[in-house]
């Protein structure tokens, strides 16, 4: 899952080396904290959060398929 998120985000941003994802496993939900360089935040969020929503939709769909729950948080 982390691999997929990294792949999606790295393709979007200008500076892939600054992409940093931390995985926090809870009892029910796995939380992914996404950090990107300051100049790339806009690209990850997108117009009215469309890109961020798209990333969440994909991650949610894949985790549901695996019988898990995942949440993505973009951290400034």
């Amino acid at each position: 899952m982390k691999d997929l998120l990294e792949f999606l985000v790295k393709a979007l941003v200008d500076d892939p080396s600054e992409v940093n994802i931390t995985e926090i496993t809870g009892d029910k939900v796995t939380l992914y904290e996404l950090r990107v360089s300051k100049s790339d935040i806009g690209k990850v969020i997108g117009k009215r959060g469309r890109t961020a929503n798209a990333i969440r939709t994909i991650i949610n769909a894949v985790s549901t398929k695996q019988g898990k729950r995942a949440e993505v948080e973009i951290i400034e």
Partner: peptide
């Protein structure tokens, strides 16, 4: 959604 991502 996938199409949107690819387009971005």
């Amino acid at each position: 959604t996938l199409q949107f991502m690819v387009n971005r």
